[in-house]
Amino acid sequence: MKTSNSEVSVQANAREARVKADRPAETKANNIFQLDGEDIPFRPGQTIMQAATHHGTYIPHLCWHPDFSAHGSCKLCTVKVNGRFGSSCTIAAQPGLDVENRTAELDDKRRTLLQMLFVEGNHFCPSCEKSGNCALQATAYELNMMSPHFDMFYPDRPVDASHPDILLDFNRCIMCALCVAASRDVDGKNIFYMGGRGLLGRRVHISSESGKLADTDFAVTDRAASICPVGVILPKRKGFAVPIGQRTYDLAPISKQVRDTTP
């Protein structure tokens, strides 16, 4: 395994960014970078994603959530920083950065990433309780994804209905690991963990010998019960509660709800 030379330079840039971010607060006027030509102010230590979100500017993302440390896996937030690709959720903001976000080139890549997520799982929106409130779906609308493009994988993934109050439908999992973070960092329970390898192996492991959620101390009041951006972790007996037309992303595109909605 090797790292390409270009990656080394990206790393060098990023390291430089980090070093600068760690410096004591500089004068506020200097703490501005450019995102698609727009001035974005930032506090030292913030990532590009954090600063943009705080400012109300949308950078597409799925695995990032303002309450948790960056996971960096979905790659939807890939931007070009001074001409180089990188994840905006992990790159520190620094003065004068020139960041490209919603360019045709980047949105094309993001659309392809979304298509990859749609074909690797079983995403049947018409029969999903999360439809209309789903970050994956809303992001695909935002990026004008008209088809899955690739051949479908139709994987065989299990549903876990063992818990009295919560249903787990892994057919819709996008491996964002937000449930892992929420259960670990907020609930202090460590019920979920992303393990396994590769397309077929990678999955959320449940912390019980049976692998069933019912055999854990998971509760419907846990932060992890409401964190899932897609329709994997769902409360039982509460499907399709909001009529079509009034659901979160019926009201406005995800890009117009940067501060209002958590993904």
Binding site: F118, N122, H123, F124, C125, P126, S127, M146, S147, P148, M152, Y154, P155, D156
Partner: peptide, 18 residues
């Protein structure tokens, strides 16, 4: 033109695929 969920991703009938 593929019109509708079933033409585009198999839709409801494709749920027999597993």
């Amino acid at each position: 033109v593929a019109v509708g969920a079933c033409a585009i991703n198999g839709g409801l009938p494709a749920q027999r695929n597993h």
